[in-house]
């Protein structure tokens, strides 16, 4: 895939987890440009102002939850088909099902190892950047 660098916005209230994500993508040599939003309001503001290729979304956040934000995103033309990958510490099947019902494209549980994060970043890049065709 050529052209300009793809843009990913990571919506997560935990800056440490965001740091792990950024380090993993960096280690994986991914060309993705990563932006961080600490909560749903900040993410909405950013997404209104700027187009992103992918959204990496946490569920448990202060104020508006990731699930609620997902529903909002799917209701807006600008982000209706943007790939949204849920990255949450919850492995609850109810959360997983609800995420897909609300329009998530994928769901992953936050890894607890560096290698786990790297595999996630590599897999993300391999599929979403190298293989998947955007509408």
């Amino acid at each position: 895939m050529g052209g300009s660098a793809r843009k990913l916005i990571v919506v997560d209230d935990d800056p440490v987890d965001v740091r792990f994500v950024m380090r993993a993508f960096s280690d994986a040599g991914s060309p993705i440009e990563i932006t961080h939003a600490a909560d749903a309001e900040a993410a909405s503001d950013r997404l209104d102002a700027e187009a992103f290729d992918y959204i990496l979304l946490d569920i448990n956040m202060p104020g508006v939850s990731g699930m609620e934000l997902l529903k909002r995103l799917r209701g807006q033309p600008r982000t209706a088909v943007t790939p949204v990958i849920m990255l949450s510490s919850s492995s609850n099947t109810a959360d997983v099902s609800r995420a897909y019902e609300n329009g998530a494209n994928a769901y992953a549980v936050k890894p607890s190892t560096l290698s786990g994060y790297r595999e996630f970043a590599e897999g993300f890049t391999r599929f979403w950047v190298d293989v998947a065709v955007a509408p």
Partner: peptide, 9 residues
């Protein structure tokens, strides 16, 4: 809370 989630504002 105004929206479901683990935080409330």
């Amino acid at each position: 809370a105004p929206a479901s989630g683990s935080h409330w504002r």
